[in-house]
C-alpha cells in the first residue's frame, strides 16, 4: 500500500504541495487530474525522490516503509517507479544497457545480455517495439511518443509495485495512446498499484481508474469514481475551484 499523509512540499519558499493525502491499495488505479500548476508533477517527482524539492511536512510509506528519507535508487528498489513526463535524452548508453543496468540493480542480480534478452523480448513484442530500438542511445533522437513508450517498456520490465505515471499520454497519437493503455493494463494485477497523472480524460478511455481525484493548489479538492473524469471534461476544473 502507498500511503501519503499530509505531505507538504516547498521549493524556494513556495508551497507546491499542501497537506496532500492519498492512500493507494493493491489492485487500484488512481487518476489524478487538475489544471496546470496544481502540483501534480511535483507530487510524482517528490514521491520518486527528486532532490530539488524540500519536504516540510507529512509522511509517505510504501508497504509500511517510510520512503521520504531514502535516495531515489532505494525507492526504486523498494518497488516505486515514476514514468517521466519529459524522459531525458542521454547519449553514450543504449536503451538495452540502461535497462539491463536498472534491472540488475533493482533485483540485485548480474544478468548477462542473453539472459536479459529473454526478459525484455516478450515485453518488446507486447509494446510493438522493434528490436533495433534497444541499440539506440537512451531516448536520443526519439519522438515524444517513442519516449513515452520507452517509459512504459521500462515499467513492464522492471515490474515495480507502484507506478506513478506522469502525463504519459502527452505527446502520444491515437495509436500510441492505445498501445500505452494496453501496456499499463497488462502491467496491472492484484499486487500492483497505479497513480495516473493526466490533464485529459482521453487516456482514461484505455485505462479504467478506480478513483479519480481533482488536484488544485497542492491538494485533492474532489474525489470520485471514473465518471468524475467525464464530468470534468464537461464542466472544467474551474467549477472545482469555485466549490473548493
Amino acid at each position: 500500500m502507498l500511503e501519503i499523509k499530509e505531505l507538504t512540499v516547498q521549493i524556494e519558499g513556495k508551497k507546491i504541495l499542501n497537506n496532500f493525502s492519498l492512500c493507494v491499495k493493491p489492485f487500484e488505479i488512481h487518476a489524478i487530474m487538475g489544471p496546470n500548476g496544481a502540483g501534480k508533477s511535483t507530487l510524482a517527482k517528490v514521491l520518486a525522490g527528486h532532490p530539488f524539492y524540500e519536504v516540510i511536512g507529512g509522511t509517505v510509506s510504501l508497504d509500511g516503509v517510510e520512503i521520504l528519507e531514502l535516495d531515489p535508487e532505494e525507492r526504486a528498489k523498494l518497488g516505486l517507479f515514476m514514468s517521466f513526463q519529459y524522459p531525458l535524452e542521454i547519449r553514450g548508453i543504449s536503451n538495452f544497457e540502461f535497462l539491463k543496468h536498472a534491472y540488475n540493480s533493482i533485483y540485485d542480480v548480474k544478468l548477462e545480455n542473453e539472459e536479459f534478452k529473454k526478459i525484455i523480448d516478450p515485453v518488446m513484442e507486447k509494446m510493438r517495439i522493434k528490436p533495433h530500438f534497444l541499440d539506440r542511445d537512451l531516448n536520443d533522437g526519439f519522438s515524444g511518443g517513442e519516449k513515452k513508450r520507452n517509459e512504459i517498456l521500462q515499467m513492464l520490465v522492471l515490474q515495480p509495485k507502484v507506478a506513478i505515471l506522469d502525463e504519459t499520454d502527452s505527446g502520444l497519437d491515437i495509436d500510441a495512446l492505445k498501445i500505452v493503455g494496453e501496456g499499463v493494463n497488462h502491467f496491472m494485477n492484484k499486487e500492483k498499484m497505479i497513480v495516473l497523472i493526466t490533464h485529459y480524460q482521453r487516456l482514461l478511455n484505455h485505462i479504467k481508474p478506480d478513483f479519480v481525484h481533482v488536484m488544485m493548489d497542492g491538494k485533492i479538492v474532489e474525489s470520485g469514481g471514473k465518471e468524475l473524469a467525464l464530468e470534468l471534461e464537461e464542466r472544467g476544473y474551474e467549477a472545482c475551484s469555485k466549490s473548493k
Partner: peptide, 23 residues
C-alpha cells in the same frame, strides 16, 4: 535523477554519464 529513479546508484550514474560525454 533519471538513472537513480531506475534504481541505479549515483556513482554508477556519474560514471555512465561521463562515459557518454566522451563517447
Amino acid at each position: 535523477f533519471y538513472f537513480q529513479a531506475r534504481g541505479i546508484s549515483k556513482k554508477v550514474a556519474s560514471e555512465t554519464l561521463a562515459k557518454g560525454f566522451l563517447d
